[in-house]
Design a binder for these strands. Structure first.
Length: 215
DNA sequence: CAGTTACT
DNA sequence: ACAA
């Protein structure tokens, strides 16, 4: 299979602009509408303070990432409905298989919904047990200004735009890099049929084992 | 500090 | 820069 070579933004941070074509984006958007009908977006809150995030989130896959006053964690059920997260659609399994470069299956896909004006401040993805597996990010909808630095908060950062269909991998030395979204640019995509942006973040949570098997 | 605010 |  022909695959265009990614751009390496910083060591370990691989970027495939336009990885998904328009049809692939539309199809994934339809998958997500079905998922969000079963696992509605909810507002995460900061540990201890309870301050709400500006993004709303949901998940698919075996585990979902949640945040509330008690802290950050992965859990197998939606915090408001109590239901298991919907399964990961085949298109996402395929994306992980093609880009992640690991035999470990993805366990969690966090769905971040950025309404116009929503932001995500600089952070690390560090709530997993397994850091040898990369984090895979897919963008859908309006273009965003993404920023990535090093493994220390004070490290210098670089910014670039993530557009609908772009894929980004945080692997190796970039797996624990600080990153965030500074801005979403209005009216830069029609894929979602509404203003805003969706970011999908696929992750391996556990080191290995039983999550490979059906329940 | 996956947060907001102030100021260049 | 913050405040715990």
């Amino acid at each position: 299979m022909a695959m265009e070579a990614p751009i390496e933004i910083v060591p370990g941070c691989l970027y495939w602009p336009g990885w998904l074509d328009r049809a692939g984006q539309e199809s994934l958007a339809a998958d997500l509408r079905a998922i969000l009908a079963k696992a509605p977006l909810f507002t995460p809150r900061m540990p201890r303070t309870g301050k709400p995030f500006s993004v709303r989130i949901s998940s698919c896959g075996r585990l979902g990432w949640v945040s509330d006053v008690a802290g950050y964690r992965y859990q197998p059920t939606h915090p408001e409905t109590g239901e298991a997260w919907p399964p990961m659609p085949p298109a996402l399994i395929r994306a992980w298989a093609e880009l992640a470069g690991t035999a470990l299956a993805p366990e969690a896909c966090l769905i971040n919904w950025y309404a116009p004006g929503a932001r995500m401040s600089l952070h690390q993805d560090r709530d997993e047990e397994e850091f040898s597996a990369p984090v895979l990010s897919l963008s859908l909808g309006d273009t965003a200004l993404f920023r990535i630095g090093g493994t220390a908060r004070k490290d210098p950062t670089r910014s670039f735009r993530l557009a609908s269909g772009d894929a980004l991998l945080l692997a190796g030395p970039a797996r624990l890099a600080f990153h965030g979204i500074d801005r979403v640019f209005p009216e830069t995509s029609t894929v979602l049929r509404q203003p805003g942006r969706i970011n999908l973040t696929l992750r391996r949570v556990h080191r290995a084992g039983l999550s490979e098997f059906p329940p």
